[in-house]
Amino acid sequence: MPISSPALLDTRYPLETPEGVDLLLQPAGLLPRLLAFLVDLIIRGGIVLLFSIALVSLGRFGWGLWSICFFLISWWYPVLFEVLWQGRTPGKHYMGLRVVHADGTPIGWSASLIRNLLRTVDMLPLFYSAGIISLLFSQRLQRIGDLAANTLVVYREAPLNSAPLPEAPEVIPPHSLQLDEQLAILDYAERFAQLSPERRQELADILCPSLKLRPEHAQASLLGMARFLRGHA
């Protein structure tokens, strides 16, 4: 659905490409990002634990190897995953997130390195507090590392799947309708099953006078219009 007014608050952040196409990025907030971080933390902890068990018998050499592994896992785990796996770490993948540049392009080495190295700043003074505060108060939900690298953590787009429409004979809309209006009628039909019977009638009543529908047939007519608008796939 098009954005009705730029003044209204929304979780989407429109981005116009040079071709005049509006891309909608949806920056993700504290909750999913925190949970993604926890998942990553558990995975990283698990890997480090495995290494510890495997390397503990090797004495000094084992300690050396362990330190190297620990370094790689704490600093390179997010960078490598983000750059090589379309901006996702396993935690972000699990939560349906990914990292992109603020202009919507896939994240590259330099941006990923900057945003992950600046975790040291976000961690200040304890437990990522600076990052949390920055995220809560920044326009596009960015922590300090994101601001420095000009990156966003966004929701991955879910694949579009249209719900089946309820059975009804096709009806041709008596007026020509604009795109968002057609979508609203389709939406009505798709969500028909979830609405309470009273609400179905209430919504249909809004359109009765203008579309010249009789109240008792209004619901069926709207469903029919939706079927007409969707067409035959």
Binding site: D180, D187, R191, Q194, S196, L207
Partner: peptide, 18 residues
């Protein structure tokens, strides 16, 4: 979600426009 507020808003716009 439950009450289709967004649908209601657009329906009202349709009614107003027409």
């Amino acid at each position: 979600e439950l009450e289709a507020w967004d649908t209601e808003l657009t329906f009202r716009r349709i009614a107003e426009r027409l």
